[in-house]
Design a binder for these strands. Structure first.
Lengths: 143, 143
DNA sequence: CCAATAAAGGACAAAATTGTCCGAATAATA
DNA sequence: TATTATTCGGACAATTTTGTCCTTTATTGG
């Protein structure tokens, strides 16, 4: 469904949010340990998220990543996916046709439409806070 | 959503079904022209579909691909996707976690579940025949 | 049997994605 | 100011996916 980059990005963001709520910055290393991801690759993804202002980074000793506390319930899965993979997940044709549109649809267009729509709604309506709560309760896991 | 291989596979199968209904075999070349796909790559995909008995192939002059007429309404999008990409689209974790399960789910597990389920239902309940009908009516397009 | 036609399939090539390495930039602190 | 910790970012490498080429195999018809 998503690229590896996106998967790591979502998990990393969740972990950062989790710690940010306790006013802690997190280092790249602690992120990759928490989510079990390759370090340098994860660094690239975090750079992208930082450029998109989803996470905030600071260099130097004691530095690392964090998310503004009051943004944790504002950031959605959709924000992360779009920052990393772009919006093709919403816009691209299910059968890969360049010119697929309502006027000249691919054979599966109407079949895929409700699925893509419910995916969009789910991603846009799911924020970091609610996902974090289940992590805090030990109901869900990052690795 | 799907791999390129899968996208070509679905379109190729639809085109073959379309012609098979008129009792015509179709050559690789005519398929790639109809669906606008790379010839040799499409050949590999058709080989896979043939090994999975979704299409039937014959060599030599007048040869080509066809689908049994009475199977056109039995073959589903799910059959094609599974033949080409396997069943990971149903089974794999949305966040790429190896050990994601009901007992130890990833943070997005419950969010993705209904989407994956509706995708499964859609793919399993959509057969070639109904998709072909819209192609025949000029309502949908293969390229 | 021979020639022509078409798919099968192995080997290779290109492109995209994923992943690594390492020096530069930046910030804290002693 | 020197040292250390940390992200940034460029260059590269490995892997996977996509795509190509060419020989072999099978089938048909003359």
């Amino acid at each position: 469904m998503f690229s590896k980059a996106c998967e790591y990005g979502i998990k990393a963001t969740l972990f950062i949010a989790h710690r940010s709520e306790k006013n802690q910055r997190v280092s790249l290393k602690s992120i990759t340990e928490a989510i079990n991801s390759p370090e340098a690759f994860t660094a690239k993804i975090l750079q992208k998220l930082a450029r998109n202002k989803i996470v905030h980074s600071s260099k130097g000793p004691g530095g690392g990543f964090r998310i503004e506390k009051d943004e944790i319930d504002q950031i959605t899965l959709s924000d992360i996916v779009i920052a990393i993979d772009g919006d093709q997940i919403y816009t691209s044709c299910g059968l890969g046709m360049e010119e697929c549109s309502e006027e000249a649809p691919c054979p599966a267009h109407e079949k895929f439409k409700p699925i893509k729509e419910s995916l969009r709604i789910t991603l846009e309506s799911t924020n970091l806070k609610e996902l974090m709560e289940d992590i805090n309760k030990g109901l869900t896991f990052l690795k």
